[in-house]
């Protein structure tokens, strides 16, 4: 199994990175021929950076839209961030001080993450409009994330696994020096699901993560009168 998981994680990491680089390069290369920020919009690049920061840290637009989705979505994302940071301890030796400091918060975050995901999923059943727009994959995505969280928390609270060995495995993986992975069903489940998430990331709606940074309605400055915005494509039209 050690070899299987080693191979799986190499593959998943490669797909995730190459897939994301490919998608981002694709977004980057595709022209944005017109200025279409949703106004009122900042008039300077600095203002746009602030708008984007508010959008990705506070979910400003979502806050305006719907308080319930905002509460659940924001709690889920912040918890996920903390949980991911907490997991850095499996990849660093010695563990960075701030990662060590975050450990207890990361545990609470794990619980809040489950609550947030459960709430988001509940909305897919109880709110008629959201039930209508939900696809099968929307449900599966929530199931996947919940299963990852539940299997992870189970190892913390129910059946401990040999995390020292797990750490050796991942530290070894990073140096291409395969170390044995503990034989533990829950751990296998947890790691398989995480690898699955990494594999589907570049092909799914999880692309909203890089996508938001490329959204012209949010990342463009409102300065069309001051500066002539041109792209290769509009320039080509002009000479027709």
């Amino acid at each position: 199994m050690t070899l299987f998981f080693a191979a799986l994680f190499y593959l998943a990491t490669a797909v995730l990175l190459i897939g994301l680089v490919f998608r981002i390069a694709d977004y980057w290369r595709t022209p944005a021929p017109f200025l279409i920020p949703t106004t009122p919009a900042p008039t300077t690049r600095g203002g746009v950076v602030l708008r984007m920061l508010r959008e990705v840290t506070l979910f400003e637009s979502l806050f305006k839209a719907n308080l319930w989705i905002w509460v659940l979505g924001w709690l889920f994302h912040v918890s996920l961030l903390l949980v991911l940071l907490r997991h850095l301890r499996y990849f660093t030796q010695p563990v960075w001080a701030w990662v060590a400091f975050l450990q207890p918060f990361g545990i609470y975050a794990g619980l809040i993450m489950v609550a947030g995901l459960a709430g988001l999923w509940l909305r897919r059943f109880t709110v008629e409009r959201i039930r209508y727009i939900s696809t099968f994959s929307d449900h599966l995505m929530l199931l996947l994330l919940l299963s990852i969280a539940a299997s992870g928390l189970s190892m913390k609270f129910l059946v401990h696994t040999d995390i020292v060995a797990v750490k050796e495995f991942f530290l070894g993986l990073m140096l291409f020096d395969i170390q044995p992975l503990p034989a533990d069903g829950l751990l296998y489940v947890h790691l398989s699901l995480v690898a699955l998430l990494m594999l589907i990331f570049p092909f799914s709606k999880l692309l909203h993560a890089p996508g938001v940074f490329f959204s012209p309605s949010r990342n463009q400055a409102d300065n069309p009168r001051e500066k002539r915005h041109q792209s290769a494509w509009t320039a080509k039209l002009e000479t027709k």
Binding site: S61, T135, K205, H208, G211, P216
Partner: peptide
Amino acid sequence: LLGQQRALKVYMDSCVHCGACTDK
């Protein structure tokens, strides 16, 4: 169009069906 308009491409990929827009 997907090759000419970043907006369209990003918008096609990014929606998570959160429901924020549904009553707007």
